[in-house]
Amino acid sequence: MSNKGAKSLMNGEGKIPSCDGTEESSSGSVAERSEGKVGRREEIVWRNVILMTLLHVGAVYSLYLIPKAHLFTLIWAYLCFLVTALGVTAGAHRLWSHRSYKAKLPLRIFLALANSMAFQNDIFEWARDHRVHHKYSETDADPHNAQRGFFFAHIGWLFVRKHRDVIEKGRKLDFSDLLDDPVVWMQRKYYKSSVVLMCFVIPTLVPWYFWGETLWNSYFLASILRYTISLNVAWLVNSAAHMYGNRPYDKNINPRQNALVTIGAIGEGFHNYHHTFPFDYSASELGLKFNPTTWFIDFMFWLGLVTDRKQAPMEIIQARKERTGDGSS
């Protein structure tokens, strides 16, 4: 999954041009990578480093508060985590980045609000970077190129300015469909206020108002700890799922099938499959595999809020396994 990481905290890392052709900030001293080795000096964005450090320190402190919290607060924090995850997996990723299914207006509004709770950049920027990631995976044009190591793919990419290839290659892709959706446009316009409300205010106030939890516990557990965990789970799709696991569908690409990432990221760890068949709404072979995001989309289909789910035909999947897979499944 791409895009990813709390870049909304961080506007200094450099941006891909917006869909109207105007270029957002892309300053930074970078040089070409030669022969696949990193030989450039990075310009560190210290504000991002400091903010992410403080966030993780706050999350560690939050662990100390767990025994003191009301059980309902912990349940609420987990529910917020699930909503947060769906805003990325079912929303920014499978719906808006890949157009793997169509969603009616009420569902799109819910997913946009859930995406604001995720605080990983607005839908437009998340989907934009993710499309660049797929188009140029594991090159300098990939925002979180896993060839540069686990740390860079996980969080380090947020600590430095974007490589100029991310910006230059990104100019060549068409993102106009994203802002043709009024839900995407509205969320982008009011993103900061929606993040404050969805990521911090509502998660904090609900436990305090409904069962008398302290605001301190509510804030650190339902906001800070939940947010930090959700970020790291999303980042694992960029790092662990691009480095560790088997490749039953295409052994010639980096993304892997990673069971632990699948569990944490509610179905996004079938990454070798996803990069082989990115249009498939399930992001995995359908069946009894653990994929809560697919279950959610299927439930929305049953309710009539989802249409046009795209799937890779089983005969195509099997043929691809035999032709390019590593034989592991």
Rank of each mutant, 00 (worst) to 15 (best):
K172H: 12
K172I: 13
K172Y: 06
L173G: 08
L173R: 08
D174L: 14
D174Q: 07
D174R: 06
D174Y: 13
D174N: 14
F175L: 08
S176G: 14
D177C: 08
D177N: 08
L178E: 03
L179H: 04
L179K: 03
D180S: 13
D180T: 02
D180I: 02
D181K: 09
V183T: 13
V183A: 12
V184T: 07
V184N: 02
W185M: 15
W185I: 06
W185R: 10
M186H: 05
M186D: 02
Q187P: 04
Q187S: 08
Q187L: 11
Q187Y: 04
Q187C: 10
R188S: 13
R188I: 06
K189M: 12
K189F: 12
Y190I: 06
Y190E: 01
Y190R: 00
Y191A: 00
Y191I: 05
Y191V: 04
Y191E: 01
Y191T: 03
K192M: 07
K192G: 06
S193K: 12
S193E: 11
S194K: 05
S194F: 15
V195R: 04
V195Q: 05
V196W: 11
V196D: 07
V196M: 12
L197I: 15
L197M: 14
M198H: 00
M198N: 00
M198G: 04
M198E: 02
M198S: 03
C199G: 03
C199W: 04
F200I: 10
V201T: 13
V201C: 07
V201M: 10
V201F: 11
I202P: 06
I202F: 11
P203C: 10
T204K: 05
T204G: 04
L205A: 14
L205M: 13
L205N: 04
V206F: 15
V206G: 11
V206P: 09
V206R: 14
P207N: 12
W208T: 11
Y209A: 14
Y209F: 14
Y209I: 14
F210C: 14
F210G: 12
W211E: 07
W211M: 05
W211H: 07
G212S: 09
G212R: 09
E213G: 08
E213S: 14
E213F: 11
E213W: 09
T214V: 05
L215G: 01
W216M: 11
W216H: 10
S218W: 03
S218Q: 01
Y219G: 04
Y219V: 03
Y219P: 00
F220A: 04
L221K: 01
L221M: 07
L221R: 00
A222F: 01
A222E: 03
S223I: 05
S223F: 13
S223W: 07
I224V: 15
I224H: 00
L225N: 02
L225T: 03
L225V: 08
L225M: 13
L225I: 10
L225D: 01
R226S: 13
Y227R: 00
T228R: 03
T228H: 07
T228V: 15
T228P: 02
T228I: 10
I229T: 06
S230F: 07
S230E: 06
L231C: 14
N232C: 13
N232L: 15
N232Y: 15
N232R: 07
V233P: 03
V233D: 06
A234Q: 02
A234C: 09
A234E: 01
W235G: 01
W235M: 10
